[in-house]
Computed example of a mutant assay.
Amino acid sequence: MGDQNKTPSIFSPYSSADPSMNVPVTAGAAGSIMSPYLNFDPSYINPGADSQFIFPEGANRQRGRLELSFSQIGGSVFVGAAVGGLNGLYTGLRETNANQLTGAVRRTQMLNFITKQGASSAQTLGVVALMYSIFGVVLSYGRGVDDELNTVVAGTATGLLFKCSAGWKKCARGGAIGLTLATAYVLFTSQDRIKSQLNK
Rank of each mutant, 00 (worst) to 15 (best):
D3C: 01
T7V: 11
P8T: 04
D18I: 03
S20V: 14
S20G: 13
M21V: 11
M21K: 12
V23N: 15
G28F: 09
G28Y: 04
S35I: 10
Y37A: 10
Y37E: 03
F40Y: 12
D41S: 13
D41E: 08
Y44F: 10
I45G: 09
N46C: 13
G48E: 15
D50Q: 15
S51T: 15
P56R: 14
E57R: 13
E57I: 15
E57A: 11
E57V: 15
G58S: 10
L68S: 00
S69Y: 09
F70G: 11
S71G: 07
Q72F: 14
G75P: 04
S76P: 02
G80F: 02
A82K: 01
Y90M: 02
G92H: 02
L93V: 06
N97D: 15
A98Q: 06
A98H: 11
T102M: 05
R107E: 04
Q109P: 01
M110W: 03
M110T: 05
L111Q: 11
L111W: 07
I114A: 01
I114F: 00
G118C: 01
A119R: 07
A122W: 03
A122P: 04
T124S: 08
T124C: 06
G126R: 00
G126T: 00
A129V: 08
M131V: 08
S133N: 10
G136T: 06
Y141N: 12
G142M: 02
G144N: 05
V145Y: 08
E148Q: 10
L149K: 13
L149G: 11
V152A: 05
A157V: 09
T158V: 02
L160E: 13
L161K: 10
C164D: 03
S165C: 04
G167L: 04
G175P: 12
G175W: 13
L179D: 05
A182R: 11
A182E: 10
A182P: 13
T183Q: 10
T183M: 09
A184M: 08
Y185R: 00
L187H: 06
L187P: 03
F188C: 09
R193F: 05
R193Y: 10
I194K: 07
K195M: 14
S196N: 03
L198N: 11
N199H: 13
